[in-house]
Write a protein that binds this DNA or RNA. Structure first.
Length: 117
DNA sequence: CTTCTCACA
DNA sequence: TGTGAGGA
């Protein structure tokens, strides 16, 4: 199917799909006219990419994870699982810090409301 | 009407 | 990633 259909089914923008291809995350064939052509499995793959990014994984990790999904039943290398576990620690800490900051600001608006006009 | 590439007041 | 241009 063409890019527009995949975008609609996966719930992402056409722009995002072209970007994923640039990043080597999504394989796309070309028609003689130059139009991208995707296999039906592309929709699921795009959703997976979404999951990965939504989980807060940096693109560099996402790029390492996807190849494992492709290569048949090959199980993910322990090293990669460790890296993902490390990401969870990092993301958890990041969220905690971010929320602490926001809560602190909400607690005493006086100290810092210069952001709002 | 849809897709493509390129570039950014 | 959005958006618009200019062409197929």
């Amino acid at each position: 199917m063409r890019i527009g259909e995949v975008a609609e089914k996966a719930g992402v923008s056409v722009r995002a799909l072209r970007y994923y291809e640039e990043q080597g995350l999504l394989q796309a064939g070309r028609s003689p006219g130059g139009q991208r052509h995707y296999p039906d499995t592309a929709v699921g793959r795009v959703r997976l990419i979404q999951q990965l990014y939504a989980a807060g994984l940096p693109s560099r990790v996402v790029r390492k994870v996807l190849p494992c999904v492709d290569s048949g039943e090959e199980k993910a290398p322990p090293a990669l699982l460790d890296q993902m576990a490390a990401e969870r620690v990092r993301v958890d800490q990041r969220i905690t810090d971010l929320l602490d900051d926001v809560i602190a600001i909400a607690r005493d608006p006086d100290s810092d409301c210069s952001h709002v006009e």
